[in-house]
Design a protein around this nucleic acid. Structure first.
Lengths: 242, 242
DNA sequence: CGTTCTTTTGACTACGGTCAAGCCGAGTGG
DNA sequence: CCACTCGGCTTGACCGTAGTCAAAAGAACG
């Protein structure tokens, strides 16, 4: 089993990346350990507290963020001034890379869900690396291609599935996002029901309703914000179509 | 005004690419004329008739398709065995590049809407170019980044807009797709109402209903498959939110 | 222990999907 | 030249999924 051994360019711990779902694109699928080291050597480490804003929508990027420890959520202001959750990122991943490469302002805000460190790589150094190192650039193409496939998956999720399917999909995705902590069946993320809902593109009323439906039919067990997946098979079946 | 002067590596005609909407990603935004020439020199030209299948979903790619002349539609089989339209591509564009880079089977089928020529580049030659030429690889990163942004736009279209907004968005996109022919206000594409509907993620009943609503309120004029956009401002307003 | 925010549940509403019938237009044959 | 047929287009009536709104219960914070 391939491993993705990074944590902040400080200490090197093991993180299993082969479990990465389609939905949680990992840098480790395309970049080698040395590639990531090369990248991290260009930047410096910055500390963020729980709930802190890493960068803000509409601002111009001034550094590529390499997320090293905890889960980061991407949010976007909707027409009603509410922040919709767009995606969740687990370590190791690159934040804001699309905007940097396209030379546009951030499309989303990035928020650390837990206390975390990130590595910030100056844009010029990153671009220089890409323009000089064909193999690195090639691997980044692979990473971006996966992000495209992931985006298509997301569209399919929202256009082809009903409440139950979307929520099941979300739960499986959340599990993939936070399973790097070693927990097996339990989703333990500090996200509200409203976040859960907007990640599934539904109202929180419906997310809660559907979740309690899952709970009553023995698919999951709810303990506050913690969700334990009981019936994996049925949940996967629902996420395919239900 | 920048121009994108390609047609099949055979004769060189002018195609304006600066008009490219966000929705109709063009290769010319990221690759230079010389880059595209370099690419085309690796492959050979193949001719396709109107309605002909360029490649089929679930098959393994055996060449990168560079689309040179006419509009190509991407379709995906849905659960009911019907082909949903996923995207439309105008020249010059690369088809199946995501699958080739990710080394997976085609996610969609590609169909030529009109008689056309494509340039087919052997995968090994293409990969070799990427791995050797850092600058080319870098520019392809830009292209893929645009595709990611485009995919996000698509998700937004489907999750945040109602029938009218989605259809307005589709009409503006279709115009961008086929305006390379020189027509100014008219969308002249050989696609059925059902295609129009599935491109807008709605039933054909609703696409037709909404289209005739647009027609009655003077937004568009319908002449068979041809759609002439009359009230651009209102259509753009609707596509933002309606 | 009260204030405030989040979660939960219920009743109502509306957007959009389903289904079916009628219409139009192109191609075919009498 | 005019029925006839067949496929896509159009419209209407009905229904189901999911959004809105509100009220109450619970959790978190000082």
């Amino acid at each position: 089993m391939r491993t993705c051994p990074f944590s902040g360019g400080m200490s090197i711990s093991k993180r299993v990346c082969d479990q990465c779902a389609f939905q949680s694109v990992s840098l480790c699928n395309s970049l080698s350990e040395n590639d990531i080291k090369t990248l991290l050597n260009l930047g410096n480490v910055v500390h963020f507290k729980k709930g802190e804003l890493i960068y803000k929508q509409d601002m111009r990027p001034n550094g590529l963020i390499c997320q090293l420890n905890s889960v980061v959520k991407m949010v976007k202001l909707n027409d009603h001034g509410v922040e919709d959750i767009v995606s969740l990122h687990k370590p190791v991943d690159l934040l804001g890379i699309t905007e940097i490469i396209s030379e546009i302002p951030y499309q989303y805000s990035a928020i650390a869900l837990e206390e975390t460190q990130v590595n910030i790589i100056p844009i010029s150094k990153f671009i220089n690396l890409l323009q000089k190192n064909a193999m690195f650039s090639f691997k980044l193409n692979k990473y971006l291609a996966w992000r495209i496939l992931d985006a298509h998956h997301r569209t399919d999720k929202f256009t082809k599935k009903h409440l139950r399917g979307r929520l099941a999909d979300t739960l499986l995705a959340l599990h993939q996002i936070c399973n790097f902590k070693g927990e097996t069946d339990t989703i333990d993320l500090q996200i509200s029901r409203a976040d859960l809902a907007s990640y599934s593109n539904m109202t929180s009323s419906n997310a809660i309703r559907t979740l309690s439906e899952f709970s009553h039919s023995g698919l999951v067990e709810l303990k506050g914000k913690k969700i334990r997946i009981v019936n994996w098979e049925e949940l996967k079946r629902l996420s395919k179509f239900g």
